[in-house]
């Protein structure tokens, strides 16, 4: 495991956007990793381990966000978080395809 900083582009897919429940899921997942986790929206940075920070981000459906992780387990962290976005935080109806793009940073 190497120290590195990586980022990845994700899209908010669930219809109600990143409201309290998904934000809660995201933070709980993020807290399981040692890496510093940030979410960028239009150049603004939000703390991935703070639910209040994430809520103020006010990401609605279709918003594109950059996930950025910095630390020993950065890769695993991003993988896990991107996966949450991918399945729309379990708020998608059946049959909607998952998609995300990777960017190396």
């Amino acid at each position: 495991m190497t120290e590195r900083r990586i980022q990845r582009l994700v899209t908010v897919r669930n219809p109600q956007g990143l409201h309290a429940r998904p934000a809660d899921m995201l933070v709980r997942r993020a807290l399981q990793f040692a890496a510093r986790i940030e979410i960028l929206k239009d150049g603004e940075r939000f703390n991935g381990k703070s639910i209040l920070s994430l809520l103020t981000l006010a990401a609605e459906q279709g918003t594109e966000l950059v996930l950025r992780a910095d630390g020993p387990d950065a890769e695993e962290a991003l993988e896990a978080l991107a996966e949450l976005f991918g399945r729309g935080f379990d708020e998608l109806g059946a049959g909607e395809p998952t998609n995300d793009h990777s960017l190396d940073g």
């Binding site: 309290a20 429940r21 934000a23 809660d24 933070v27 709980r28 703390n47 381990k49 703070s50 639910i51 209040l52 920070s53």
Partner: peptide
């Protein structure tokens, strides 16, 4: 559980690092 989730969010806010 879906309804219980709002309390989970409260809990998360309570423990929020920023706050």
């Amino acid at each position: 559980d879906q309804y219980g989730a709002i309390f989970s969010a409260h809990h998360q806010m309570l423990r929020d690092a920023h706050l």
